[in-house]
Design a protein around this nucleic acid. Structure first.
Lengths: 225, 225
DNA sequence: AAGCCGTTTCAGACTAATTTCAGCTTTCTT
DNA sequence: AAGAAAGCTGAAATTAGTCTGAAACGGCTT
């Protein structure tokens, strides 16, 4: 079960991420409407938790655009209690549910369960690149017969690389997406995980390797067989 | 990466300048809205950090005017927490992000990275000149089949030359843009990199060459095949 | 309490990028 | 044409970024 959180208040966003984590939801967090829309359009999420008041594009705009593009992912809108925005507006735009801040974590979880149940599961089960297959629900990475289990962070790092194949993913991005924006994770954390992943690629005998772009980041590369 | 800071509290402005410096951003500081606007319009900045409450012209006015003139530079607004200015107003005026004082340097840096990158992906993916293509995300320079990887500084130098094709780029400009304003890089540093680049052009068999304008600078030239 | 697993931290090895230097070539000046 | 200034470039020296094994850590399970 994958959840996208779009919320510009970093503190709240991280808190939500924390809650999701504790309940075993894989979570991505972005901090503005534009990124939110782009991430949502990737179609990999089972639920999208969307703040209304956002930089770049409001939550309303995001849902509307999402629906226009025929994306049916369940959307839960968040709004501050004193914002004079109308619940009806949100639902008209195509949102599935609506909740005012502040709220209890339990309520959030309940609503997420509710709207995700409503949908028939149409989630992609795995990501692939060259000879590698990353199972998104079991966290197993396999190549042919062999298979290894990835830890949560290994998984997240690889997932991001596989979702952006052929693009260089900046270390910064990995840090903010895997460790969270206000973490004090250091570059070496990322490096350590890249190292772990390389070891596992090697173990699997994959032709895929992780290329380093110095001072920038990493990208997947499919070496010749 | 060039940053313009518009902030009337001299102490804060200087502190910001210091932080930027430590993180290798080339920085200019001005202390009122009018200068801010003029500097910003010069179009040489990658990010503008703009206080809301300013002498001469408010931050809001500055962004609005900037946008009216079709200047798309990413703007990060600053405001004191107890000012009753509205976040929405700022974003509506065309700012890209918004932060309340006081804030941690780390947060500022993170946001600067975020908004400067954000516009980066709207911007073109590669620069081309004659038979050369410079991939802006992988730092690869290619010509036909062949491709070479450029180091950070090589890349920056070439990028500037390719962004100003047919114009002579003064050595001084290269130094301040690539090494930073306060650097004590010497002309020979630039010369060394020009030399590296020429070698790579030759390796690629490109018809492009780097012409020297004595006592001034360099420019790209597309020789005949 | 002991063991396991995923994660973080650290230090040294390693490697690529960058700077520096020196001698050489080209261009300009007179 | 001679000398001076500016520029070029190969090689060496230095620095900065990255990799990785090992150890420490912390939460969970047995």
């Amino acid at each position: 079960m994958r959840v996208l959180i779009v919320e510009d208040e970093v503190r709240l966003a991280d808190a939500l991420g924390q809650i999701m984590l504790e309940h075993k939801y894989a979570t991505d967090i972005v901090y503005n409407g534009e990124d939110g829309l782009n991430y949502a359009l990737s179609g990999q999420y089972d639920v999208i938790v969307l703040d209304v008041m956002l930089p770049k594009r409001s939550g309303f705009e995001v849902v509307r655009e999402l629906r226009k593009q025929k994306n049916a992912a369940p959307v839960l809108l968040l709004t501050a209690r004193d914002e004079i925005t109308d619940k009806v507006t949100g639902l008209d735009c195509g949102a599935d549910d609506y909740m005012t801040k502040p709220f209890a974590p339990e309520e959030l979880l309940a609503r997420i369960r509710a709207i995700s149940r409503r949908q028939g599961d149409v989630v992609l089960e795995e990501l692939t690149y060259a000879d590698l297959r990353l199972n998104l629900s079991t966290y197993d990475l396999q190549r042919g017969e062999k298979s290894v289990h990835l830890g949560f962070k290994e998984f997240e790092v690889l997932k991001i690389l596989m979702a952006n194949t052929k693009m260089v993913v900046p270390k910064e991005d990995l840090i903010t997406k895997v460790w969270g924006v206000e973490s004090h994770a250091e570059d070496n954390n990322v490096e350590a995980y890249i190292s772990f992943l390389r070891k596992k690629f090697f173990f699997l005998g994959s032709k895929v390797s992780i290329g380093t772009i110095r001072k920038v980041g990493y990208r997947l590369e499919a070496g010749k067989l």
